[in-house]
């Protein structure tokens, strides 16, 4: 078949396909108002025909501009067909209902390693400062330490009062999100340095927490401190451990890519971890909500302790038991 006849045969189909492409690019409201050139279920078939016509045009050495035009049509059809996003709401719901817990259980050894890298230095530092208080100055300078001690040195007599205004609560909420989620994201992305930056972040944070906690205990502010942190610590520390685990896993893909090329191994690993990173970001948002709006309430210590323990147990129980029914 000569090119002219070929074009004559298919001209209408191509025009319809082009109209459909502009139609599909419209926002939903305008799309509803218009009549599509053909019903949506015909798209795959029409796209396959177009593919066949492109193959023929290439094989029969039709003119370059025709081939280019068909190529452009096929490419846009390809994007439309293969770029369709699944139902996002449903995917998110499924992941929250169990997929996240399954992912965490799958990476349990990395989670354990990250937990050791965070809590090991913390306990070591607590013990060290307990035995030799001056060791605290290795991590923090005296000015910072006294500042932190001042932060928690309020009297506990005003029970039931709100410690600060609501607007300050919201300010702190913004700050916690900005600060903590960014740290967790960096902890994960830093894993690409063969895990070194992740290890550094975990150990550094562990040492820091250890010093602060022990110094506050030594200063007799343990109750103030614990009543503040116990509510959000479960979600916050949990999320930091998970970001560390994801970072270490990514770093391991750099070090030992297995039977893939290094970049293929990285891409594969990242694809299996990205859900976990989204999940831990949500955990940090929950932690920030608790830290900004619940933790500063000055209630009796037993109440804070009870609610706090429940809040720590929640993520633990979730990771242990959620999503067991559909495998692993």
């Amino acid at each position: 078949m000569k090119q002219d006849t070929f074009e004559l045969h298919h001209r209408q189909d191509w025009a319809a396909f082009e109209t459909w492409l502009t139609y599909a690019a419209l926002p939903l409201r305008q799309r509803n108002a218009q009549q599509p050139p053909f019903p949506a279920h015909e798209l795959p078939q029409r796209y396959r025909h177009l593919c066949q016509q492109l193959a023929l045009a290439r094989d029969r050495d039709y003119s370059l501009s025709l081939v280019e035009r068909l190529h452009a049509l096929v490419q846009q059809g390809h994007d439309l067909l293969y770029g369709a996003q699944g139902n996002l709401g449903q995917r998110v719901w499924r992941y929250a209902a169990g997929g996240f817990a399954r992912d965490v259980r799958r990476e349990r050894w990395w989670v354990l390693a990250a937990a050791l890298l965070l809590f090991g230095p913390q306990l070591t530092m607590m013990l060290a400062v307990h035995l030799k208080p001056d060791l605290a100055y290795l991590i923090l300078d005296p000015q910072q330490l006294s500042q932190i001690e001042h932060m928690y040195s309020h009297e506990v007599k005003n029970l039931g009062q709100v410690a600060r205004e609501a607007s300050t609560d919201f300010q702190m909420f913004g700050f916690y999100i900005f600060n903590n989620v960014s740290i967790a994201f960096r902890c994960f992305a830093g894993g690409i340095s063969a895990g070194l930056l992740t290890i550094f972040a975990l150990v550094h944070n562990g040492l820091f927490f250890g010093v602060i906690e022990m110094r506050l205990i030594q200063a007799g502010l343990a109750e103030n401190f614990h009543s503040f942190v116990i509510g959000h610590s479960g979600f916050e520390m949990g999320a930091i451990v998970l970001s560390g685990a994801a970072g270490l896993r990514l770093g391991f893909a750099v070090l030992a890519p297995g039977q893939r090329t290094r970049s293929a191994a990285l891409a594969h690993t990242a694809r299996s971890l990205i859900g976990m990173v989204c999940g831990l970001a949500v955990m940090l948002v929950i932690a920030a909500l608790i830290e900004a709006f619940w933790s500063p309430l000055r209630l009796a210590f037993p109440i804070k302790l009870g609610v706090g323990s429940l809040l720590i147990l929640t993520p633990l129980l979730y990771f242990l038991f959620a999503g067991r029914r559909d495998g692993s």
């Binding site: 205004e165 609501a166 607007s167 300050t168 919201f170 300010q171 702190m172 909420f173 913004g174 700050f175 999100i177 900005f178 989620v181 960014s182 994201f185």
Partner: peptide
Amino acid sequence: GLGRAGGGLWLLAYFLLDW
């Protein structure tokens, strides 16, 4: 104009735009 809460809001916006 929203005082301290506005500061929090701005940080949130910065965080969202950044990532």
